[in-house]
């Protein structure tokens, strides 16, 4: 397997915990134990109610495209061979949104509100990125 040359997340702290779940095939987000608000990206405490108490909860893995851009000219050298590629914002059923890529949708077929579901992309031995595909009916 050739070396993976693109930017990787650092696997420390709460970000590392998020990616640890991805590596075991789970998409989890923080949920406040007090007011039950879901949140992403990881935060130390709940900005809605102020509670420090939270837990990682499994996401349904399902959501819809909130917005997207097709990148035709890479502005980072490591993505030069990937163009055109789409960066998408997915709004999960839980309400949180995350930035990702889609794996099986041609750029010209992207549309807002398109239903998608998570798939896991083990880009290195240590890092698995959550990606999205068209929701399977």
């Amino acid at each position: 397997m050739s070396a993976y040359m693109k930017p990787l997340p650092e696997l420390s702290g709460l970000h590392g915990e998020f990616y640890g779940f991805c590596r075991s095939g789970e998409l989890r987000f923080q949920k406040c134990d007090s007011c039950e608000s879901w949140r992403h990206v990881p935060r130390e405490l709940c900005a809605e109610c102020g509670s420090w108490d939270w837990s990682w909860h499994a996401s349904s893995g399902r959501g819809k495209i909130f917005s997207w851009t097709v990148i035709d000219r890479a502005l980072h050298p490591d993505f030069a061979d990937d163009v055109p590629y789409a960066a998408v914002i997915v709004e999960m059923d839980e309400g949180v949104r995350l930035l990702s890529q889609v794996v099986d949708i041609e750029p010209e077929r992207l549309e807002i509100d398109l239903p998608v579901e998570v798939v896991f992309d083990p880009v290195t031995d240590e890092v698995t990125l959550p990606r999205f595909r068209r929701a399977q009916i």
Partner: peptide
């Protein structure tokens, strides 16, 4: 770094 750049 951790949530945007890995996806380009």
């Amino acid at each position: 770094r951790d949530f945007y750049m890995p996806h380009g």
